[in-house]
Design a protein around this nucleic acid. Structure first.
Lengths: 199, 199
DNA sequence: AGTAAAAAACCGACCAGTCGGTATGTTTCA
DNA sequence: TGAAACATACCGACTGGTCGGTTTTTTACT
């Protein structure tokens, strides 16, 4: 039974995630992680060849969970504008859920500046979402609910930028606004410009 | 004449900025900075009580330069929609100019998670820009070029989010698109939804 | 002006402590 | 009984920061 092994492994990853998020990667020592997970340094390096490998695994885990949440709300087909509004409404949940892991997210980006491998892992989901949104917008144009003159590429980028920007602001200034409402209103505003113009 | 003193001080700050940007704050040692600036450790700690104080000064310098650039392009009054488009067109320059200092920007945000003082310094310009844009949008509504039903607060937040989000994407994926064009198109799209509807 | 004294700027060896990682041994489990 | 899982003592490298001493610049006074 490899249950014990898995438990310590999970303990390491969980406490590391918390510590990295609250203190940053560099500021968190391996010893600290071991103490938090109540295991020894030997156990730590038995499971992870280096501290940085642990970081990478955490990153992959986080990205996977993000992906899961995303496709959960994206893969429902109604009329496109309404679908986007639904996504906006549900994204509030994702925002709040991700709130705690946002520092890790930032940590990933910081690291990706100096490490090409991290960069690749961090940038690829961006491109995926961008393409996904592009497809949705194309569908909206095809079904006649969005303006035929709309550039799907630009619109998708705008959407992604809006999401990232709001995410940022919501995290750093949670008291600054009711972000759930802001998000919904913002998508509403965007759609105002995207919808097919009756003329 | 205290010129010599100022020179070494400037040398410290400049090399520190480069090193922090390329390696991160924690990963850059005081010794490294001293070597780069071609001064001794004694000189370093003569000018800055701690490494972190140097960081804070760098941050203030960067924010000040950002403010300067911003108000340079914002304080020109034409018709509001056209003004925003002009801003978008010029922002491309700011983007490119800030490209090199973007890692520092990220470093500021990372640090602000763990340090309230840094947080305050990092979040205040956000709120300032938010208010500034809000005022501009109000003016647009008053002059009749923007939809009277537009919520200035939400619209301003949307604008800031868009800027931040695009800035992010442009930095991390510079080859992903012609960001100058994307920026202009995005503002164009936004304005589509904001403009007064003839009905 | 010249000069002595005070102050500011600077140097580099040094410190105590921490870091990620290793080596070697012990326990646990199949 | 052998391999995987874990513990612990330990290592060299490196960290931010200090400190006593030296050099340069400014100030004060003749």
């Amino acid at each position: 039974m490899q249950l014990r092994s898995e438990k310590t492994r999970a303990a390491i990853m969980d406490t590391a995630e918390k510590l990295f998020a609250s203190q940053g990667y560099d500021a968190t020592s391996v010893a600290e992680i071991c103490a938090g997970a109540e295991i020894s340094k030997g156990a730590f390096f038995h499971h992870f060849p280096t501290k940085h490998d642990l970081f990478m695994e955490l990153m992959e885990r986080w990205l996977a969970s993000l992906d899961a949440g995303m496709s959960l709300i994206l893969d429902q087909s109604t009329n496109v504008p309404q679908g986007l509004l639904d996504v906006a409404a549900m994204s509030g949940m994702i925002f709040r859920k991700s709130e705690s892991s946002f520092p890790m997210f930032l940590e990933f980006w910081s690291q990706s500046i100096h490490n090409p491998l991290v960069w690749q892992a961090a940038v690829s989901p961006y491109r995926r979402y961008q393409e996904k949104f592009e497809g949705i917008i194309r569908r909206g144009i095809a079904e006649g609910s969005l303006d035929p003159g709309l550039d799907p590429d630009a619109a998708a980028r705008e959407l992604v930028a809006l999401a990232v920007g709001l995410f940022f602001q919501a995290f750093f200034d949670p008291e600054g606004a009711v972000w759930d409402d802001v998000l919904k209103e913002s998508v509403q505003l965007l759609l105002n410009g995207w919808r097919r113009r009756p003329e």
